[in-house]
Design a protein around this nucleic acid. Sequence first.
DNA 1: GGCAAAACATGCAGGCTTGACTGTTTGTTT
DNA 2: AAACAAACAGTCAAGCCTGCATGTTTTGCC
Lengths: 193, 193
Amino acid sequence: MRIPQQERSRATQQRLLEATVDCLIEHGWSGTTTTLVAQRAGLSRGAQLHHYPTKAALVLAAVEHLAARRAEEIRVEAAALPVPELDRAVELLAAAFTGPLYVAALEIWVAARTDALLRTALVPLEARVGRELHRLAVDLFGADESRPRVREAVQATLDLLRGLGVANLLSDDSARRRSILAVWTGQLAEVLA
Amino acid sequence: MRIPQQERSRATQQRLLEATVDCLIEHGWSGTTTTLVAQRAGLSRGAQLHHYPTKAALVLAAVEHLAARRAEEIRVEAAALPVPELDRAVELLAAAFTGPLYVAALEIWVAARTDALLRTALVPLEARVGRELHRLAVDLFGADESRPRVREAVQATLDLLRGLGVANLLSDDSARRRSILAVWTGQLAEVLA
DNA sequence: GGCAAAACATGCAGGCTTGACTGTTTGTTT
DNA sequence: AAACAAACAGTCAAGCCTGCATGTTTTGCC
């Protein structure tokens, strides 16, 4: 009766999900095999299959886990921002679209395009995450969406960050990104003002 | 002595490369197996291995083929645009970032992130393609890059389109895209004017 | 203490992918 | 026409991935 099994089970599942996300980051979607995930989690394949009987089950759980982590990461950094300043707010969001977690999410999005099961599970989830992100951005920017063009400008900002994140995939792009964001932030300020 | 073998060879290689791109579009990166490509090209595996001895060779050739096709597609549509009008120009570029060819390119980018061979081959190629695309956009917009913020605005537009393309991966996003681009184009016009 | 269930470990079978090997047809050269 | 090279076809072995089946340990409960 050392460790309650419910807690132990939860901990093991967490380890598996973390390992899945790590594998996605390091080896990409096709490199993320169940065997590798089990190894990385320091678990036997048997234990893995006990918790997640199929690869689909594992990945779907990992997707939710990933979404939660991304949301939390953004929220934490947002909380560390005392004064609503546009430049810093955009910078903060940009970080969320260049980190490893975004990369993992991208791997899953691209894979889901041609994987019916993943896709159907992902679309509603991403819709929710997208709305949350939008809301967060609105708050960060101190934007008033009832004014014309504000809503579109905020969304454009997020989509721009998505694109910059893609451009950052293969080689470090931070210098270019900075100068682009500097200009866009100015434009954004005009719309929000 | 009907068909010169050089021409025949070229034709089969084209078929293989087209089949590779088609497979990328339909089945994604991990679904693109050499066997499937050979089948789709209506060729035996022997013939395939004769032309491209490894999968890496095949894919690298397909990447160049894809880049050429994307560039040509954009150039063709650009030529069909008589008067330089900003709205239409942005629309045209947006189409280039939502079509199947962009999807195929995205599959390769994401895969290249964790595939050293692909990556080293892709980085210089994409740098070139990126410059060409930028140049094309500048021409289409009739932009004067010597003026402040113009260069960044053009690049931001391309990165925004990249991001919108990603958002369009899983579900049709054209309505949202239209409204965002409408606002964006307005902002862009201010910078260019 | 004893029993059931959950957590975990290990080995195995089937399917798939890749690249190699051998053979055949078609084109080229002399 | 004869020898040679390229294009093409079919088959095979090795390796990997997934899921299952069978044990072993740990936990919960009586």
